[in-house]
Amino acid sequence: MVATKMESRIVTINRAATPKPKRKRLNQAGRPTASELEKRKLRVMEVATQLFVERGYAATSLVDIARGAGVATRTLYQHFGDKEAIFRDVIFARDAEAALQPPKVQSGDTLYDALMAMATYAYTITYREQSIGLMRLMIAESNRFPDFMQSVARTIFANFRSNIERVLEGLAKAGLIPDENHARSAELFSDLVLGSHPIMTYTNWDSSPPERADIEERLELFIMGRFGTKCAKTARTRQVK
């Protein structure tokens, strides 16, 4: 009986003396991993974009963005800056998101085919949800950030016209149109084909895309007016080799 008590006491002492194993900490510094940080940034941008588009700049606060993204307000300051910095990031991000791969001149294309693909590309950009949201937000906040909005708008339209210009250069190289001022042709093309559709869409006056017959008529006017009768006659038959 005494031995049993002694053995029990020894076991108790040994247990007390044995150090408990330390639990492994997944992140000992308490900092998020690169993957976690990237997901967090994407979530912040999603929430900020939604709030800015729905409420506008003035009615959106950092607290609202932080709460919606599930992060602390100080986290926004650390990784994004103040509200204006986040707003600028949203505009730039949506500009990039709205970008589409423009069509390229391919073997077998006619002049009409290539320009119709370009017109389809133009209308697709105009009526994409992210494009509409971006432009409406820019219009709404243009008085608050005039220089910034002007710079972004110029970049957007310059990129769009450059894409048209490259298509026209490809058509000239293939001998389907004259090799002349393609920058001017791209400007005329965008003005004639798009017309008032973008501004009517962005101001919510009309959100209906044009009918194909309307697009065809605009293309025929552009070909005839810019390149003349000779190109117009072969616009649907002569192909890129």
Rank of each mutant, 00 (worst) to 15 (best):
R88N: 05
A72Q: 13
R31P: 01
A98C: 13
L100H: 11
R74T: 12
M224P: 02
T4Q: 10
F52L: 09
F160K: 04
A85M: 06
R55Y: 09
L188C: 05
L171Y: 13
L221V: 06
T203N: 03
H197E: 12
N163V: 04
L171F: 15
A85I: 00
F52H: 04
F52D: 05
S208D: 12
R43N: 14
L76V: 03
T155F: 03
I164M: 08
E7V: 07
L115W: 04
A34C: 03
R67T: 07
T201Y: 07
T155G: 15
D147Y: 08
H197P: 00
A114Y: 05
I13T: 13
R136I: 00
R136D: 01
E211M: 08
V11N: 06
E46Q: 12
I215R: 07
D191L: 14
I13W: 13
C231Y: 02
K41E: 11
F52M: 04
G108V: 07
E165F: 00
S162N: 08
A69V: 04
M224A: 12
A183D: 11
N204Q: 11
R136W: 00
K5R: 12
E7W: 01
A186V: 04
A232R: 10
V71T: 12
N159H: 10
D113T: 10
M116T: 13
A232N: 10
T12L: 09
C231Q: 15
A48L: 09
A66C: 10
Y127R: 08
V240I: 09
L100M: 13
I164E: 04
E54H: 03
L62C: 11
H197V: 12
I139N: 00
V193G: 03
T33G: 10
